[in-house]
């Protein structure tokens, strides 16, 4: 490799790191805003303020107000809690179910493996949205129900990746060696296989978060998103944007600002995922 290429490579890495840090910073800021929402805004995200219905952005209401006179900025702050919880929670549920499944499948091999993979085929052949809806009707209209419904649909990706990685790792010399000296299965998995599959799984996790936020916003469009202004959780960004879609012509700010919040958050997670992949899983770029 020429020196020029090396310099380019360094520049690239620096650029990549900067983007990664920027994304991380944005995500941290959004999370913090969600936690500190009551301190950051003098307004309540709930209730009815009769005199302030559907105002545009102003000094007292930076992002304007909505159909019940609630401050949109405040609602977006509180909404960060729901949307991030949905994103991260769903991804974690999917991760746990999926990697365990993939691990068992890949590690055991043989007929159990093919049976488990046939089940994955079936789950994969179901229309996602339909299953979301059915599960969220079955599990109830609260944050836990939505999390579980989304998680139960999106674990398949983790299962496939985990299984693939396990199959690779099983071939490694040291795994075979460990098995030869009679190490227990649990030990082999914990010691030798998990560390190997952690990288790709973490990258998948990062990409699953924006996917879950998008999925929740699709549920919101159908009217099944999370909305409970008086609870600690508040109303998701998806639901806020859906309210805005119904007022788009006259009051574009109601869809614009939640839309931007979703956009920048998802963008950050995607850049974070790209960056992590470069570092943890350089082959898969």
């Amino acid at each position: 490799m020429s020196r020029q290429n090396e310099a380019e490579e360094q520049r690239r890495q620096r650029g990549q790191r900067a983007l990664l840090l920027l994304s991380l910073a944005f995500i941290a800021a959004v999370t913090l805003c969600g936690f500190l929402a009551p301190l950051l805004s003098p307004y309540s995200p709930a209730g009815l303020q009769e005199g302030r219905i559907l105002e545009g952005p102003s000094w007292s209401h930076w992002l304007g107000t909505d159909g019940l006179g609630r401050d949109l900025f405040t609602r977006i702050l509180y909404g960060a809690r729901v949307s991030l919880t949905v994103g991260i929670g769903t991804a974690l549920i999917a991760l746990i179910i999926g990697s365990l499944y993939g691990l068992i499948s890949g590690y055991s091999g043989g007929p159990l493996d093919s049976l488990l993979m046939r089940i994955v085929d079936v789950v994969y052949s179901l229309p996602d949205l339909l299953i979301f809806i059915l599960l969220s009707l079955l599990l109830g209209r609260n944050i836990a129900g939505v999390l579980l419904a989304l998680g139960l649909v999106s674990w398949v990706r983790f299962a496939r990746i985990a299984r693939g990685q396990v199959l690779q790792a099983k071939e490694f010399v040291y795994v075979e060696g460990a098995r030869a000296i009679g190490a227990s299965h649990l030990r082999i998995i914990m010691r030798h296989i998990l560390p190997n599959i952690a990288g790709p799984i973490l990258v998948t996790l990062t990409f699953s978060i924006p996917a879950a936020i998008l999925a929740e916003s699709t549920l919101s469009f159908i009217g099944l998103g999370i909305n409970d202004p008086y609870s600690e959780w508040g109303t998701s960004w998806g639901t806020l944007a859906q309210d805005g879609w119904r007022a788009m012509r006259t009051y574009p700010h109601i869809i614009l600002f939640p839309g931007l919040a979703i956009f920048f958050t998802i963008l950050s997670f995607n850049y974070l995922g790209n960056g992590l992949r470069d570092i943890l899983d350089p082959k898969g770029k």
Binding site: G47, G223, R246
Partner: peptide
Amino acid sequence: TDEDHKIVAEAIQGM
């Protein structure tokens, strides 16, 4: 679940 019902419910909840 419906736009109008949500608005009415949230307003009455506030009252």
